[in-house]
Nucleic acid binder design. Structure first.
Length: 263
DNA sequence: ATGGTGGATGCTCCA
């Protein structure tokens, strides 16, 4: 099974890139974030026509929004609210024969890395804590789970273009890195991408729109992740960050991340 | 130190 996570920054603007995306990733399952569209306007038919007829969509007007689009059938699927908000930031699907998939869009957190001064940052920290508590409370921590999404945290020093310069920049602050680590530990998740790419090697999945030349300045961050639960660790086959997508027209500021798992 | 761009929306917010 190949699973691709991609923050599309508007699914309707990115829809024409789908055939290329499918050709490049061979995805059986897509986890999309920032779809930015209400469910009734989601381009369901375009995905179905390409073979992704199993869909769970949780969107809202203008902001956020997630979707799982799959060639493989679901046994059950749904969406969940976090932090008592009805932001659409999480969808899940249990494959009929395969793992349970969770797709997350963690709050970006605003600009000021102080929860007292910035309620968006407070929300982000609360979200990370609540997610860790939720997975930690699962009765059996043995289910095969793939957790993917834009987690809006770059945990390793090599996940950002400058560890020192980003220590006080939201996405790479010590408290965010600690809370993301707690979330991983809550279910003993394994970072499926770093399983293949050594931590010493720089790796990014996002480059700001605000650079004159994103590739030349290369000030990226690895915000998009795929984690697997321990039982799937030995089933991991490959991981790939599809950097050329940053030059697609029109580009998302995030690129697709694909993981291949034997299931 | 600052502002830079892009998306959805509707004369601004969010990333």
């Amino acid at each position: 099974m190949r699973l691709t996570t991609w923050n599309v920054n508007s699914v309707r603007l990115r829809i024409d890139l789908l055939p290329e995306l499918i050709a490049r990733t061979g995805a059986d399952v897509f986890c999309l974030q920032e779809t930015k569209v209400v469910d009734q306007d989601f381009p369901r038919a375009a995905f179905a026509a390409l073979g992704y007829e199993h869909q769970v969509i949780s969107g809202q007007k203008s902001h956020h929004g997630v979707a799982i689009l799959s060639r493989l059938p679901f046994k059950t699927s749904g969406a969940r609210n976090w932090c008592d908000k009805d932001d659409r930031r999480h969808a899940w699907a249990k494959l009929a024969s395969g793992p349970e998939i969770h797709n997350f869009y963690v709050p970006a957190g605003g600009d000021i890395p102080d929860p007292d001064a910035n309620e968006k940052f407070a929300h982000k920290l609360a979200f990370l804590r609540e997610a860790a508590a939720w997975f930690g409370a699962q009765k059996s921590r043995k289910a095969p789970i793939v957790l993917a999404g834009d987690l809006n945290v770059a945990p390793l020093e090599t996940d950002v273009w400058s560890h020192k310069q980003l220590l006080d920049v939201v996405s790479h602050t010590p408290i965010e890195v600690e809370l993301l680590g707690n979330w991983m530990a809550s279910y003993k998740f394994v970072d499926a991408v770093r399983h293949f790419v050594p931590p010493a090697e720089r790796l990014y999945s996002w480059w700001s729109y605000r650079a004159a030349d994103w590739a030349k300045s290369d000030r990226g961050r690895r915000l998009d992740h795929v984690w697997v639960s321990p039982v799937l660790k030995d089933h991991l086959r490959a991981a790939h960050v599809f950097k050329p997508a940053r030059d697609w027209k029109p580009p998302s500021d995030h690129v697709p991340v694909t993981v291949e798992i034997n299931v």
